[in-house]
Write a protein that binds this DNA or RNA. Structure first.
Lengths: 140, 140
DNA sequence: TTCCTTGCAAACGTTTTGCATCGGT
DNA sequence: ACCGATGCAAAACGTTTGCAAGGAA
């Protein structure tokens, strides 16, 4: 299924900006891009799409469940194409982000919620640490 | 130990704004206040302290390890006096915040980090759900 | 042709900064 | 008296919105 069908199925009219933005996220499934970074990629691809439109489209794609918005510790949100549920491990030195999924963790969250009489809706779980990459400590 | 001694021990000169702000956080150990809310409380107490100073002081207190900064899903940070480590459970309907601590969770985080060769530094774990308060669904 | 979508620019809310003044020690 | 801390106003930042023009069905 291509992007345009994905958009249609989500009830969104197929437009150039939507298709391009979804393309970028889909082409980089392991990246966590900010609105600005996405906009830069569009510009680099000679697409003249306004930053405001990038924000509007990202919001629509998120509501449609096609992408996921993340708010890590920066004051900038980042977006990724929606995959199966996962949490994040972030290297505080090089900024590398690893996605992981742990069933024990999910169950534990359910249990904790139940203990407090909460009906769990969603969660944010982000681990910050130092990775063991040889080439770490560089960028960001 | 009073606030002034706490500030001195942290290597911070004792000033009126610092003392007042620390007072507020200490007097509300279970609240998660934004810079603006703290500023409002100061104004309500007839303290003429600028909002910029509130931000500057909060940053200093955080660096000194006296308070904890939280970035929940809003686009506003909130601050609380530093207590023993804990995570948060937030009601998406009424905004109520419950602090909890779970040893299994802490250990699981260590294990996951180790699995990915990360040296764990800190984490953010926030559960979002619906509380069971009779008077829920009201504010915020 | 009809609305929805877009681009642009201006507004927004939160946080930061420049600078002259003030205040702890 | 010194140097850091403060108040104010203005800037910066990411994000949102108003509006006229453009585009998909």
């Amino acid at each position: 299924m291509n992007n345009n069908d994905t958009l249609k199925d989500a009830g969104l009219k197929v437009t150039h900006p939507r298709s391009e933005i979804l393309d970028i996220l889909q082409a980089n499934p392991d990246m966590h891009l900010s609105a600005d970074e996405i906009h830069n990629k569009l510009v680099a691809n000679n697409q003249s799409i306004g930053l405001a439109t990038v924000y509007r489209v990202l919001t629509q794609l998120e509501v449609a469940g096609l992408i996921q918005k993340n708010q890590f510790s920066d004051n900038q949100s980042s977006y990724e194409i929606k995959k199966q549920h996962h949490d994040h491990l972030i290297c505080i030195k090089c900024g590398k982000i690893i996605e992981f999924m742990n069933d024990d963790l999910e169950q534990l969250q359910e249990k904790i919620s139940k203990d407090y009489n909460f009906r769990l809706n969603s969660h944010v779980m982000t681990l910050f640490g130092e990775c063991s990459d040889d080439k770490c400590a560089g960028k960001k």
